[in-house]
Design a protein around this nucleic acid. Sequence first.
DNA 1: CTCATTGCAAAGGATTTGCACTAAT
DNA 2: ATTAGTGCAAATCCTTTGCAATGAG
Lengths: 148, 148
Amino acid sequence: MDRDEVSRQFRAYLRDHNLPITAQRLAIADIVLGSDNHLSAEDIMLELGARGAVAGTATVYRTLELLIRSGLAVERDFGEGFKRFESTRDTPHHEHLLCTLCGKVTEFSDERLERMTMLIAESNGYSRLRHRLVIAGVCEGCRNRESV
Amino acid sequence: MDRDEVSRQFRAYLRDHNLPITAQRLAIADIVLGSDNHLSAEDIMLELGARGAVAGTATVYRTLELLIRSGLAVERDFGEGFKRFESTRDTPHHEHLLCTLCGKVTEFSDERLERMTMLIAESNGYSRLRHRLVIAGVCEGCRNRESV
DNA sequence: CTCATTGCAAAGGATTTGCACTAAT
DNA sequence: ATTAGTGCAAATCCTTTGCAATGAG
């Protein structure tokens, strides 16, 4: 699924909901949906600047809300004090590895984990809605850099 | 491990670090270390009030930092927009189930999960430091209440 | 033309910090 | 007496909101 495709989906969402298609919305969606990274609101603002486009902070947050509501992006909280946003394009449910030194994020998914959380929830009387696993550690690159 | 014991440990920590033992510190430590719940800073302030003790917001946060540094408490972030604090007394590593309706928190631990996260980190080139799993769902009580 | 979006700036909530005052050792 | 802690209020960080100006359909 490429950039044009996700952009098309977002336009369709806006059209279906009678929401104006603005340059800002498309620029923000293009960045968030086209990126393989987990972007913060600030990352998005910087990238907008780098592309010569501009949008106010409020517009960025408001557009992010639309992307989430449309199901094209999800919000992540890694306990860093701010949120990150990630495209849902071709990624079903997955977990994250976070490097505590450089902030790098690696995704993974594990079928056993899915089953385990379901069972754990059940055995504690909870009906599971969702779960979130974050493994914090030091990535390969930082480990090598550290030992210098 | 009872209240007196944890209080004693905190005093020892303060003494060993040449830090004054103040009424505020003891009151806050008593609340955090003596509770079985995951308290927010606000919860702590309210409880202080309920006990007739008083401490400024700044003091609460500064004392929480001491409790964390001493290893007697840990900080939790359930993505609620604020942090919670939990005594480490007789609880090694464990995970959390969070009820999305009433906010109830249930703890559990799972040996297989420990091993799994270790293996997952390794196979992705990360040296694992720690991990955090939160399963969000609806607890038994809320489920029954809902179906009314 | 009409109505929603935009952007600024002000407001918001949680947490931190500067500083004069107070208390522990 | 010293030295550190306390509390207030101001400051910070991320995010949200009010409102006049602007732009999409």
